[in-house]
Design a protein around this nucleic acid. Structure first.
Length: 418
RNA sequence: GUGGGUGUAGCUCAGGGGCAGAGCUCUUGAUUGUGGUUCAAGUGGCCGGGGGUUCAAAUCCCCUCACCCACCCCA
């Protein structure tokens, strides 16, 4: 193999099939966002590095080692969308205009991780953020919306897991509790967790190692660390979801890796994926605004990993396109073909021709390959009487008809395919 | 970032010191003007890259890169 260029590590080329899957996913989610009253934002791929250090948290892995930096500048390719939306809200003082907003966004995120199935260095998020209310009904709306989007593209098998971290004080209380309990058995934990006990005790209960799990499972975790209000909030959420008939699993060991989460956290997983099994995740972040130096505003949101959703979907057969193919039987018919194409296209009929000089057989083979349902054959003999052949590929039938009736006939036939 | 696996034709893969292989795909023909099926022929390779051992390396050794899986992290 000659030396040649290839895509950079951790990126993927979307083939036209993947693009059409991506586009249908995009269209369906945008329809749902509109239905739920969300407005789209389109924010830059570049942001100040500090935004994420302050927002996502110094201790998090994203900030520690996974940000894609622009050399020589304090600028990074955005690793996630939430901090960015908050930046946008604060910068433009939206709290002074109308302090309740429902946003959504679509686009690429960047992280310098080691690539794996379902984990890329450039990947797409579909995300939503509701800013300006701590109503439990918005927690519910966000969760429902995330599920609806995953549903709408035909992914039926998925699980919803839920937990509440509580308010800032509750989070601290829980951290304290874990720290105290686990310090005694510190030696039995993995080396990473031994560090976590000091830096980020909450992450210990999310560790996947068996030996850590065993110890963590012996901790009695539940809603005990939550204050009265936070317990109320969470119980109300569970009730609302229950009333709406939404299946969920309460998982007291679920925490999110980003510092800004408070109260409700959730994760939507699929068993169609490998170890990177989260299709999407989200939660409430009532402290992020003040952490970023702004007014104190509650918010809740989620993000879906587009490539993971596509992976979980697997390969679906392509929808047939209504495409008309023009084949030439005879010499010097290229101009005739081009004229006919112009007429069809003027009538909004998708059509194509293979202008490489080839046998009729090869032309038909090509026409079949690109998925044409109807083929017009321009034959020398027929053209002398102003006639052409219209061939229906799936039925293997053909008829000879007058050139002037062709467009009408094609329109009629194509109706049967849509 | 850590551990394991794999790199040979466009794709899926076999071969394992001595002429580079199969199936599928693609092109052409059997049908001077009819696709899918069948039959026949043909195109296509720095055996991932670099170095070493050897008369001789796709094959053995070292380095490196990429991909896959798991850890970690996360969507």
């Amino acid at each position: 193999m000659k030396r040649q260029y290839s895509n950079v590590r951790g990126t993927v080329d979307f083939s036209s099939q993947q693009v059409s899957l991506y586009e249908s996913l995009r269209r369906k989610s945008m329809n749902l966002f509109n239905l739920y009253g969300y407005r789209q934002l389109m924010l830059p791929f570049l942001e100040e590095k500090n935004l994420f250090i302050k927002g996502v948290g110094q201790a998090s892995e994203i900030v520690q080692s996974q940000m894609m930096k622009i050399e020589g500048k304090d600028i990074v390719l955005r690793p996630e969308g939430t901090a960015q939306v908050v930046r946008y809200y604060l910068q433009h003082r939206l709290d002074k205009k109308n302090n309740f907003y429902k946003f959504f966004y679509l686009g690429p995120m960047f992280r310098g991780e080691r690539p794996q199935r379902g984990r890329l260095r450039q990947f797409n998020h579909i995300g939503a953020e509701v800013v300006g209310s701590d109503s439990v009904y918005l927690d519910a709306e966000i969760i429902i919306l995330a599920l609806k989007i995953v549903d709408s593209i035909g992914l039926k098998k998925k699980q919803l897991q839920l937990n509440s971290l509580g308010c800032q004080a509750d989070k601290k209380k829980l951290s304290q509790y874990i720290k105290e309990k686990l310090s005694k058995q510190k030696d039995k934990l993995c080396s990473a967790c031994q560090k976590r006990i000091v830096n980020n005790p909450l992450r210990v209960i999310d560790c996947k190692r068996d030996k850590c799990k065993r110890i963590v499972n012996s901790l009695k975790l539940g809603k005990g660390h939550l204050c009265f209000d936070c317990q109320n909030h969470f119980n109300n959420l569970l009730n609302v979801l229950g009333d709406l008939g939404i299946n969920y699993k309460y998982n007291p060991f679920l925490v999110r890796g980003l510092d800004y989460y408070t109260h409700t956290v959730f994760e939507i997983t699929s068993d169609q994926l490998g170890s990177q099994d989260a299709l999407g995740a989200g939660g409430r972040y009532n402290n992020l605004f003040s952490q970023l130096g702004g007014v104190d505003i509650p918010a809740v949101g989620f993000a879906l990993g587009v490539e993971r959703v596509m992976l979980a979907l697997g390969k679906k057969e392509q929808k047939k396109r209504s495409l008309v193919f023009i084949a030439r039987a005879g010499k010097n018919l290229e101009k005739q073909g081009l004229l006919l194409l112009s007429e069809l296209r003027a009538n909004r009929i998708a059509s194509s021709c293979d202008f490489r000089a080839k046998s009729l057989k090869a032309q038909l083979r090509y026409g079949q390959k690109i998925g044409a349902e109807l083929v017009v054959i321009l034959g020398e003999d027929e053209l002398k009487e102003n006639k052409v052949i219209l061939k229906d590929m799936s039925k293997s039938e053909q008829e000879t008809l007058k050139l002037k009736d062709l467009t009408t006939k094609i329109k009629e036939k194509l109706k049967n395919y849509d």
